[in-house]
């Protein structure tokens, strides 16, 4: 009686109408829970929960892992930065100290009316029995045997050997070294000679001369090596024995030879005052 097409069309229209009615009815109903819904929720819920929690766990783990990795990287970077900063800080401090030392040396250099050459100490004597240091200036720089070496604190020693670029300096604390000296306060003369344990002795000072502990010994300039007036050391002990015409005087040098890093070599020594050298 009806064609197939007409049946399908009618079915679609009926479905449309039912849908409209159902939606209209359901939308007007009060939302109450009912058994089927609860059962569905009860069954599906745990799976949902398990899945959701798993996803969250994995996501959390993933995110935290990456977070930790990032933090670890950041930490590593910060540590490196801190180390760099510490190293730079140390370098700046070292530079500041070198700057202060060099400024002092420069002021002292300006105070000496002769040409001086600054040099770095590069090595010490291999033997504990002898006191010499090596400096990084030699004949090519104008340094020669016999030239005095000084620092702002006082007399260091004199050059005993020189190669083209390096020189060996015999320190005043070596037993083989001697400097003609004066007691600054009383002008008493004597010879400062190296002694044991980094000290010196002030020899040939007459008993009659007034020399006290704490007096400053300076170079007299009469030895033809060291310019006059350079500080050498401080009197530590004075011994006047019953016999003998001289007194025994122990002197502590002003220069700390353990921490010696930069020195000045006095170059242009006038022939009048330093006849032994050109």
């Amino acid at each position: 009686m009806f064609s197939k097409k007409a049946v399908i069309l009618l079915g679609l229209i009926a479905l449309f109408v039912v849908s409209i009615v159902a939606l209209t009815v359901s939308s007007r109903m009060h939302p109450t829970s009912h058994g089927i819904g609860q059962g569905g929720i009860a069954v599906v819920g745990p799976f949902q929960q398990a899945f959701t929690q798993s996803v969250r766990f994995v996501r959390g783990l993933w995110e935290h892992y990456f977070f930790l990795v990032t933090v670890a990287h950041e930490n590593e970077e910060l540590r490196r930065e801190l180390a760099r900063s510490q190293e730079m800080n140390h370098r700046y401090r070292e530079l500041e100290m070198a700057n202060q030392r060099l400024r002092k040396l420069l002021h002292f250099r300006e105070a000496i009316p002769r040409q001086v050459l600054s040099a770095q100490v590069i090595g010490k004597d291999p033997s504990p029995w002898f006191k010499t240091v090596m400096i990084d200036k030699g004949r090519a720089d104008g340094v020669d045997v016999g030239y005095p070496v000084v620092v702002p604190e006082g007399v260091v020693g004199q050059v005993t050997d020189a190669s083209t670029h390096y020189a060996k300096v015999l320190l005043i604390i070596d037993k083989n070294n001697a400097v003609d000296g004066l007691v600054q306060r009383t002008r008493a003369r004597g010879i400062i000679q190296g002694a044991a344990e980094g000290r010196c002795t002030f020899k040939y000072a007459l008993r009659k001369h007034d020399i006290e502990v704490g007096d400053t010994i300076i170079s007299s300039g009469l030895d033809g090596v060291f310019p006059k007036g350079l500080r050498v050391g401080r009197v530590l002990e004075v011994i006047k024995r019953d016999a003998g015409i001289f007194q025994e005087i122990e002197v502590v040098p002003f220069v700390d030879f353990e921490t010696l890093e930069e020195v000045l070599v006095v170059l242009n020594m006038p022939a009048r005052e330093y006849g032994a050298h050109p």
């Binding site: 291999p126 033997s127 002898f130 006191k131 005993t160 050997d161 015999l170 083989n176």
Partner: peptide
């Protein structure tokens, strides 16, 4: 070599 480096009398080393 040591003798050249040291302040010891030459030949001691």
């Amino acid at each position: 070599i040591m003798d050249t480096l040291s302040g010891a009398p030459f030949g001691l080393y």
